[in-house]
Nucleic acid binder design. Structure first.
Length: 154
DNA sequence: GCCAACGTTGGC
DNA sequence: GCCAACGTTGGC
């Protein structure tokens, strides 16, 4: 099983939205490296749900991959900001995953804590200027993140 | 294929 | 709102 970190702006879609919906298609990824990571995800992989551009930045909860290689429907929607005129029904450019809510953490595991705990090599999200919205997380780092959030805020 | 201009992300 | 760090676009 692999671990991933998925970024979302909570004003657009937060862990609370996912808790309400139960499942969602992780649509709108339009970066090739992020897409390639998503395309390699497996059913059962766990994803850290990260809130970016928020009052409290950090990992807010967990979800799990329930369907892989889902065709992102927004690429065909001319009214969507994610519309891609170069995409065709026969040859869609953008696949993604469907994820299911697992849990909302009792507190947000903040970027500040992540920066204090992990090196940029261990966890890409603490790398300065690193903007990728989907990134892999090593199993050991994932375990340490879960241990951190089980403790009270520092 | 190069690279300057432009656009986007996202922390601060 | 600023700006660093990219990624993308398009002229050549």
């Amino acid at each position: 099983m692999n671990y991933w970190l998925l970024k979302s702006e909570p004003e657009v879609y937060s862990i609370d939205h996912l808790a309400r919906d139960g499942e969602t298609i992780w649509d709108g990824i339009r970066n090739y490296q992020a897409r390639n990571y998503l395309n390699s995800a497996q059913v059962g992989d766990h994803c850290f749900f990260y809130h970016s551009s928020a009052a409290t930045i950090g990992v807010a909860g967990l979800c799990t991959v329930v369907t892989t290689l889902v065709v992102d429907p927004t690429q065909f929607d001319a009214t969507s900001e994610y519309y891609d005129p170069k995409s065709t029904l026969d040859n869609p450019r953008w696949h993604t995953v469907r994820v299911q809510f697992v849990e909302k953490f009792a507190r947000v595991l903040t970027l500040e804590e992540l920066q204090a705990t992990f090196t940029p090599d261990e966890l890409m999200v603490v790398r300065k200027g690193y903007r990728l919205s989907v990134m892999p997380v090593g199993a050991d780092v994932a375990g340490r993140m879960l241990a951190l959030v089980a403790r009270p805020a520092p």
